[in-house]
Design a protein around this nucleic acid. Structure first.
Length: 474
DNA sequence: TGAAATGTTGGGGCG
DNA sequence: ACGCCCCAACATTTC
């Protein structure tokens, strides 16, 4: 009589290296790797459209990687608690391992699952695979969660130990009998018709191997100019690791370790490395906020914004989503998002600011659109970043910081290459008018819309709306 | 991880 | 030669 297998429940940790749950499970004996498509638990935050495309590719990659090690990936769909209950009864598993999640609905679910399994004497062990610093491990001197990034990151980065991440287990022992698995294809995570994701494969390689290559390419070819280059949407200077990090195809400890090693080999990289790692810091800060303020995805972090006089105009929202605002940089970003499932960070800030401040549309609507269209949709980062832009968040941009999309374009896309790539109507505009085409003598022949709001007027209106808030300036 | 308005300064044109 | 004025250029303040 052989010992029963153990279960490794994969969630947002779709990798074999630096995966403490997998490693611990592999040491016990036969392992059943499991992924559960649970669309019921998250409610309105169920995995969005673009992220489902990514998930499909990532699961396919994980499945292949497991097969190379003599294992498999078992797929099941449904409420995770019920699925796991069924699976443990089917194969007699007495032990399950997973890496922790931090979304409020996942914490609630996993806590309940753990209690239920333990009541049946199934042992549960959880680990940290996704964060450099888990949210409950650091507090301010006043024993409060951090609400300002700089002191947060100072405290957090001081706690990070730069250990070599664990390698993937070389082999995984299969169970005597493989449980039933559903078919990834039949989950239909990818769009069929219209196939709006048809260009995604030109831009992304989901999966652990793709993530590692992305990191090494970034460190080798872009880190040396990251500090300033990261702001240029017309150039490839960002890491583009966010979707890989979201699904845990690579972990932040691996990224940290590799970037630190690069900086130690080449001291000139230190400034750029610090800047890059601080971006990981913003990711950590977002998780910290989401954990301590679980209403972050829905409610203003600063309650003063609860009385903000929004002007939730449906036509304006639609124009924004379609990239038809008449502001080239905003429209380029929104079209890049639709075509590729991502948007350059600098442009995200401008496009998001435009929705909230020029159009006075609630940040929650922008967050919902991004949730559905971004391959890197991540509840912590998305919620915290939208609140940052709106001015309603922790350590947020002051409301009166209103981006001028023309000036931002001229500053960060000086040759207009980014705009020309995504807004083809403006292909033949010269550099002088590419970010303000209404000033071009041939504007009428460009078939590009007039701005849906005039900047100066919109700015004044936003400042006026902000001034009406009580206590907003505190 | 702003932009615009307002203030200050100093070089140069000009009577 | 000198003072006046204009206005970039830069700095500071305000939103």
């Amino acid at each position: 009589m052989t010992a029963p297998p153990v279960i490794v429940w994969f969630r947002q940790d779709l990798r074999l290296a630096d995966n403490p749950a997998l490693l611990a499970a592999a040491k016990t004996g036969a392992v059943i790797p499991l992924f559960v498509l649970d669309d019921e638990t998250p409610g309105r935050w169920k995995t969005g459209g673009a992220a489902r495309w990514w998930l499909n590719e990532s699961l396919a990659a994980l499945s292949t990687d497991l097969e190379k090690r003599g294992s498999r990936l078992i797929l099941r769909r449904g409420r995770a608690g019920e699925v796991i209950d069924d699976l443990t009864r089917e194969n007699g598993a007495r032990e399950i391992f997973w890496n922790r999640l931090y979304e409020p609905f996942h914490i609630t679910r996993d806590t309940a699952i753990k209690a239920s399994l333990e009541s049946r004497s199934v042992k549960v062990t959880s680990f940290n695979a996704s964060l450099l610093v888990e949210p409950w491990t650091i507090k301010t001197g006043a024993d409060e969660p951090y609400k300002v990034f700089t002191p947060f990151w100072r405290a957090a980065s001081g706690k990070i130990e730069d250990a070599s991440p664990a390698a993937a287990p070389k082999t995984l022992r299969p169970p005597a009998v493989w449980p039933r698995s559903e078919s990834l294809t039949e989950w239909r995570l990818k769009p069929a018709s219209p196939n709006w994701a048809r260009l995604f494969p030109d831009h992304w390689s989901p999966g652990e191997a793709g993530a590692r290559k992305r990191l090494s390419d970034f460190l080798a070819h872009a880190l040396d100019r990251y500090a300033d280059g990261r702001d240029r949407p017309d150039q490839n200077n960002t890491s583009r690791l966010s979707p890989h990090l979201h699904w845990g195809e690579i972990g932040p400890r691996q990224v940290w370790h590799a970037a630190r090693a690069a900086a130690e080999r080449e001291p000139k990289l230190e400034r750029h490395t610090a800047k890059f790692l601080a971006e990981l810091g913003w990711r950590e800060f977002s998780y910290h906020l989401l954990y301590h303020f679980p209403t972050l995805p829905e409610r203003n972090f600063r309650p003063a914004f609860d009385s903000f006089p929004w002007d939730d105009n449906e036509a304006a929202f639609t124009a924004w989503t379609k990239g038809r605002t008449g502001y080239p940089l905003v429209d380029a970003g929104m079209r890049e998002l639709w075509a590729t499932g991502t948007m350059h960070n600098r442009v995200r800030m401008v496009a998001a600011s435009f929705l909230v401040k020029h159009l006075l549309i609630p940040w929650q609507r922008g967050a919902a659109w991004f949730w559905d269209t971004l391959v890197d949709a991540d509840l912590a980062s998305n919620s915290a970043s939208w609140q940052w832009v709106a001015g309603s968040g922790a350590d947020a941009a002051p409301y009166f910081r209103i981006f001028n999309p023309v000036l931002q374009g001229e500053k960060f896309d000086p040759d207009g290459a980014y705009v020309r790539r995504w807004v083809t109507e403006l292909r033949d505009c010269d550099n002088r008018t590419i970010h303000r085409p209404w000033d071009a003598s041939n504007f009428a022949s460009l078939s590009y819309e007039n701005p849906i709001v005039e900047h100066n007027r919109a700015r004044a209106r936003a400042l006026d709306a902000f001034a009406k808030l009580s206590g907003a300036r505190a």
